[in-house]
């Protein structure tokens, strides 16, 4: 097999900030966090402590009490379970991943 040549920048400088997005780390997961929107109080603690920045902020359309809701980005979630552990109202449950 012939190795492909990679074109290097001068000094091997990386010129594309925030570019690890192509690395979908969600495939590492064994357990999957499931967020119960009815129980969620939007405190943001899960967002705060997520090592992979997987809590996306979306506009709330169903529940009139809140303006925003969190949704989990399963492309990057590694299933560590910190969010489920830290959630003060136990709105996040870890379930076995089925693929």
């Amino acid at each position: 097999m012939k190795a492909e040549k990679t074109k290097l920048t001068e000094g091997a400088v990386v010129v594309t900030p925030a570019s690890t997005g192509a690395n979908k780390t969600g495939s590492w997961r064994t357990y999957k966090p499931c967020l119960d929107q009815k129980k969620c109080i939007r405190c943001g603690i899960c967002w705060n402590f997520c090592p992979d920045n997987c809590f996306m902020l979306k506009k709330e359309t169903e529940n009139k009490k809140y303006k925003h809701r969190f949704e989990i980005n399963y492309d990057y979630c590694k299933g560590c379970g910190i969010c489920a552990k830290e959630c003060p109202v136990k709105a996040i449950m870890m379930q076995r991943e089925e693929k």
């Binding site: 690890t20 979908k24 402590f49 492309d75 990057y76 560590c80």
Partner: peptide, 16 residues
Amino acid sequence: FFHSGHGACAGCGPAI
């Protein structure tokens, strides 16, 4: 400023 897709272990304290 520290984006998803990095290769830290699941539950990495330093990444938080």
